[in-house]
Simulated scan of single mutants.
Amino acid sequence: MATPAFEEIAETFDFLDDWEDRYRHVIELGKAMPALDAAFKVPATKVDGCASQVWIRPTVTGQGADATFDFQGESDAMIVRGLIAILHALYAGLTLAEVGRVDAVAELGRLGLNDHLSAQRSNGVRAMVERIRQVAAA
């Protein structure tokens, strides 16, 4: 159930053999994201459970079954900012129901991230996914 944007990232990861290159690509994805306005870096948007500081500002457009999900995010760590960009590619533009059906563990597993992130980073990704799912379910 991956979006075209996420499929593009997965294809790039398939092409990059070396994990150093993949890490650099993740960081580049994070650098390409627009910055989150400082006004939104507040406790309500902060994601608990991350080793780095992470903020996710979700937006829902529309109502009912056709409502779509998007978010802005930022972190003080470049690799985490890149992970936010990957999650954005995975979820942005999906309906709220589709967000709940995404198997983030499986999709991120396609990138091999589970094997190459520290336990703290993996916990942070899980916390971000949980926040996204909670917003979509609300």
Score class of each variant (00 low, 15 high):
1 M>T: 12
2 A>S: 15
4 P>T: 11
5 A>M: 12
6 F>R: 09
8 E>R: 15
8 E>C: 11
9 I>P: 05
9 I>G: 09
10 A>F: 03
12 T>W: 09
12 T>S: 14
13 F>L: 11
16 L>M: 10
16 L>T: 10
17 D>S: 15
17 D>L: 15
18 D>K: 14
18 D>F: 13
18 D>L: 13
19 W>S: 06
20 E>L: 10
20 E>T: 14
21 D>W: 03
23 Y>Q: 09
24 R>C: 04
26 V>C: 14
26 V>T: 10
28 E>V: 10
28 E>G: 13
31 K>L: 12
31 K>G: 04
32 A>R: 15
33 M>L: 14
33 M>N: 11
34 P>A: 04
34 P>E: 05
35 A>I: 10
37 D>M: 08
37 D>F: 09
37 D>G: 13
41 K>N: 11
43 P>R: 03
43 P>E: 01
44 A>F: 09
45 T>N: 15
47 V>Q: 00
47 V>L: 07
48 D>H: 12
49 G>V: 01
49 G>D: 04
49 G>K: 04
49 G>E: 07
50 C>T: 02
50 C>N: 00
52 S>P: 04
53 Q>G: 12
53 Q>E: 12
56 I>D: 04
56 I>H: 02
56 I>S: 05
57 R>L: 15
57 R>H: 14
60 V>L: 09
60 V>F: 03
63 Q>E: 15
63 Q>N: 14
63 Q>A: 12
64 G>E: 07
65 A>N: 10
65 A>Y: 10
69 F>G: 07
69 F>R: 01
69 F>W: 03
70 D>N: 14
70 D>H: 15
70 D>R: 15
72 Q>C: 05
73 G>F: 06
73 G>Q: 07
73 G>L: 12
74 E>L: 07
75 S>K: 00
75 S>C: 01
76 D>R: 01
76 D>I: 02
77 A>M: 01
79 I>H: 05
80 V>S: 01
81 R>T: 07
81 R>D: 04
82 G>V: 02
84 I>Q: 07
84 I>R: 08
85 A>C: 03
85 A>T: 02
85 A>M: 04
85 A>E: 05
86 I>Q: 02
86 I>H: 01
86 I>W: 03
89 A>L: 03
89 A>K: 04
90 L>T: 05
91 Y>E: 02
94 L>C: 11
96 L>S: 10
99 V>M: 04
101 R>Y: 13
105 V>Y: 09
106 A>D: 14
107 E>G: 00
107 E>H: 01
108 L>R: 07
108 L>W: 06
109 G>F: 07
109 G>P: 02
110 R>G: 10
112 G>D: 12
112 G>P: 01
113 L>D: 05
113 L>M: 10
115 D>Y: 11
115 D>C: 11
117 L>H: 05
118 S>T: 13
119 A>V: 12
119 A>E: 12
120 Q>L: 12
120 Q>C: 07
122 S>K: 13
123 N>V: 06
123 N>I: 06
123 N>H: 11
124 G>F: 08
125 V>E: 02
125 V>H: 03
125 V>M: 07
126 R>P: 06
126 R>K: 13
127 A>I: 00
128 M>E: 09
128 M>N: 02
128 M>I: 00
129 V>M: 07
129 V>F: 06
130 E>G: 09
133 R>S: 11
133 R>P: 11
133 R>N: 09
134 Q>I: 01
134 Q>D: 15
135 V>L: 09
136 A>P: 06
137 A>W: 08
137 A>L: 09
138 A>C: 08
138 A>G: 15
